[in-house]
Amino acid sequence: MIGLLEHVRGCLESYLPELIAIRQDLHAHPELGMEERRTSAVVEGRLRDWGIEEVERIATTGVVARIAGRQPGGQIGLRADMDALAITEETGLTYASRFLGRMHACGHDGHTTMLLGAARYLAGNPDFAGTVNLVFQPAEEGRGGARAVIADGLFERFPCTAIYGLHAMPGLPLGHFATRHGAFFAAACPWRITFRGTGGHGGAAPHRANDVMVVLGSFLQSLHTIVSRNIAATDVAVMSVGYAHGGSAESPSVIPPDVVVGGTARCFSEDTAVILARRLQQLATACAQAHNCSADVEIAWRAPPLINHAREVEVAVAAAIDVAGRHAVDRDAEPLTAGEDFSEMLKIRPGAFVLLGNGEAHAEPPSGLHTPHFDFNDALIPIGIAYWVAVVNRELGNVK
């Protein structure tokens, strides 16, 4: 395995510029979840151009390619996500998003490209025993893509005894890896509450209004007791407010009849998720009733906790070491309260998720994920491809 990355780089030399061009083209044409029509057409077209015949659509905008080795054997899955975010790009890059309000701010353009590169490499070097299913998933960013592909028969149509995923991580040194056994990413839950009152004249007759602004103030004060007074100090949970809307700056004397507040909840166990949801409902209802108002509470857990499986973490760690060396692999990384819907797949099949260091790319200091200045580092492409090849080597035998 010594020199795997160098070997892959050598094999990629003739077409690495093409892969970089694909990545930058995807970056320039971002599409939101379940709208990845152009992206999936690019993916499907490239796979077929490279002689991969078994390519199918899944969940409308998803794509799965099947590559069989020269010998029979096991079946594994490699997964990348394809969707962009509703953010206006501010990188100033020549290949920046052509669409106001949409950009690849999370590296999914790079994830897609690395898996495409792995597909091309594996198709030309099928000296392994078994089948590799390459899953190009739509709608990871909160629009239910993992659930959609599972519902469309992902694991029935493309059987996998194990499935693997990765994510580029800014701030982590270029080409370094991080993962852990057990809970790695948090369950993610956007919530929204509408408080309804009567409204009224804030100057002449505030005493006649059921004032939702008073309810909102009481609720915001109480909200942060959910974690501190209901969740054990040894557990981890987050409850944050992201927005509040009510009334009008043009009518400051009017008490509005309703106000909307929303945010996110995060945790690492489903038991904790139940507590967070219950207390959010109880507090919103109690605060509203105390002021003769009502509360409509919407809670939607978009992804369960991402729980890595022990055997597959060992496979992932070994593959990462094959590529980057032991010094560049953190096998006991801190859990992250970010959400990742690859967790849905890990509830059904064993697998492992790793972070792959994006380095600094174009920004100094490096820009974080989900920010207007983030860009995937193209120097990561051959490293990601080599990692996928190493996973196949570890699961199905050497790719020569």
Rank of each mutant, 00 (worst) to 15 (best):
H7M: 09
E13N: 15
S14N: 14
Y15V: 08
Y15A: 12
L19I: 14
A21K: 12
H27C: 12
E31K: 04
S40Y: 10
V42S: 06
L47A: 05
R48I: 11
D49L: 12
D49Q: 09
W50K: 07
I76K: 05
R79N: 01
D81M: 05
A86N: 11
G92N: 02
G92A: 14
T94P: 10
Y95A: 10
S97F: 08
S97G: 11
L100C: 03
T112Y: 04
T112I: 06
A119N: 04
N125K: 04
A129Y: 09
T131W: 02
V135Q: 07
G153W: 10
L154T: 05
F155D: 00
P159L: 10
C160A: 13
I163D: 00
L174P: 13
A178V: 09
R180Y: 15
H181E: 15
A187N: 11
T194S: 01
F195L: 02
G197D: 04
G199Y: 05
H201Y: 06
H201E: 03
G203H: 09
R208P: 02
V212M: 02
V214H: 03
V215P: 00
S218R: 01
T225F: 11
I231V: 12
A233D: 11
T234Y: 01
D235K: 11
V238F: 08
M239P: 00
S240D: 06
V241N: 09
G242C: 09
E250N: 08
E250D: 08
P252Q: 05
P257Y: 04
V259H: 12
G262K: 05
S269N: 10
S269M: 07
L280Y: 01
Q282F: 01
A284S: 07
A288N: 01
A300D: 12
W301A: 13
R302E: 14
I307H: 12
N308I: 02
N308P: 05
H309P: 04
A310D: 03
R311G: 10
E312L: 08
V317G: 13
A320L: 10
I321Q: 15
R326S: 15
P335D: 04
T337Q: 12
E344I: 02
E344M: 15
R349L: 06
G351P: 00
L356V: 14
A361K: 07
H362E: 15
P372S: 03
F374I: 08
A379L: 08
L380F: 13
L380I: 04
I381V: 15
I383G: 03
V392I: 13
L396H: 10
